[in-house]
């Protein structure tokens, strides 16, 4: 379990540029959770995940990973973080070397590294044939998978993904989300930062909404997307399919608006036909 205990964080404290990024944040991530973090740009999401991953030192509050402070090496190694546009961080000559970079730094044996590279590639749905290709020759979707595989090769128990599908085309996006879902099913706890409300609606079991550095909402996606007032305050919107149902209702159709997926919408509308 990840316990986030009463954390506050201010950038450039004691200078005229001081900015409070987070204020008294408390929440837990249980093993097996698929937690989404949503909020406007500048709401504190990136600061929060960097703190949870142990990349920013805390002065106020604490983060504990399975009961151990994030400052310890063993705690930190349980967390993997995939940043936005991670493919920009690819740098090795081959896909294999790039994925192996992290495990190598962990000082693992050659055999163990090779095994982890194979496993990580399989997990993200990359063909073993591309092992010796340059990562720069791959498509956008594949590059991103290589970058994610590099993190998975570290075998994190908790995986943080910051906007993993931003900039991908619809198909690459769908495929990558399916792989993330598979990882979750394989036992990895997921923390998922996203602007794509439809992804939050279909994937997450819980969602935290940040606004101006505070937690505005914590609960299920279904509950969140029925609360217009909270969405407005956070600068968010329901998923497109939910918006469509709201519009249909305004157009006079007697339909439920508590709809989160296309399948649900199809069922609801076919009732009318």
């Amino acid at each position: 379990m990840i316990e986030v205990k009463n954390i506050s964080y201010t950038y450039m404290q004691g200078t005229p540029f001081e900015k409070t990024a987070l204020r008294e944040i408390n929440f837990n991530v249980k093993e097996g959770d698929f937690l989404a973090v949503a909020g406007h740009t500048g709401s504190g999401k990136s600061t929060l995940i960097q703190i949870v991953a142990g990349l920013i030192d805390l002065k106020i509050g604490a983060v504990e990973i399975d009961g151990e402070d994030i400052k310890s090496k063993t705690a930190r190694r349980k967390i993997g973080i995939v940043f936005q546009y991670p493919e920009y961080q690819l740098f090795e000559e081959t896909v294999e070397k790039d994925i192996a970079f992290g495990p190598k730094n962990f000082g693992l044996s050659e055999a163990e590294i090779a095994a982890r590279v194979d496993e990580a590639m399989k997990l993200v749905g990359l063909d073993a044939d591309i092992k010796n290709s340059s990562p720069f020759e791959l498509s956008g979707g594949q590059k991103r998978r290589v970058a994610i595989a590099g993190i998975l090769a570290l075998k994190p128990k908790y995986l943080i993904l910051d906007e993993p599908t931003a900039g991908l085309d619809p198909k690459a996006k769908k495929n990558l989300l399916a792989e993330i879902k598979k990882l979750h099913r394989a036992g990895v706890t997921i923390i998922f930062v996203s602007h794509a409300m439809e992804d939050i609606a279909t994937l997450a079991n819980r969602v935290i909404v940040l606004a101006q550095g505070e937690i505005l909402f914590e609960g299920t996606p279904r509950k969140l997307f029925s609360q217009t007032e909270i969405l407005n305050r956070a600068g968010l919107m329901p998923p497109p399919v939910t918006q469509l149902m709201l519009e249909l209702r305004r157009a006079g159709l007697n339909v439920s608006t508590e709809i989160l997926t296309l399948d649900e919408a199809e069922r609801e509308l076919s009732r009318l036909l």
């Binding site: 906007e163 931003a166 602007h195 409300m197 600068g235 968010l236």
Partner: peptide, 11 residues
Amino acid sequence: EPTAMLDPQGR
């Protein structure tokens, strides 16, 4: 792709 990195409001 001017909206690829934006939140729903920004889009």
